[in-house]
């Protein structure tokens, strides 16, 4: 355990573990595609999408456009 970079790496690894939990990683898709393959989502994340709500692509565009006004 004499690696001088270890404390930094250990911190980074712990951060990695945290990020893995907090962020919904795996397949990243746009709103439309996520909806259209909802079945697949259910297969692998089960009810993890329970608490999820994805605004449609169009709404996002509108929201973004609205922000610019």
């Amino acid at each position: 355990m004499s690696d001088s970079g270890r404390p930094v790496l250990a911190h980074e690894v712990t951060l990695l573990e945290l990020v893995d939990r907090v962020l919904n990683k795996g397949v990243v898709l746009t709103g439309d595609i996520t909806l259209s393959v909802a079945d697949v989502d259910l297969v692998y994340v089960g009810l993890r999408v329970l608490l999820a709500s994805v605004a449609t692509l169009e709404e996002q565009r509108q929201l973004a456009a609205g922000e610019a006004l």
Binding site: L9, E12, V13, L15, L16, V19, L23, N24, K25, V28, L29, T30, G31, T34, V54, L57, Q60, R61
Partner: peptide, 14 residues
């Protein structure tokens, strides 16, 4: 770990 910074821009986009 090298990909860690890239993990953050984790956004749906158009």
């Amino acid at each position: 770990l090298e990909h860690l910074p890239e993990a953050f821009p984790r956004r749906v986009n158009a």
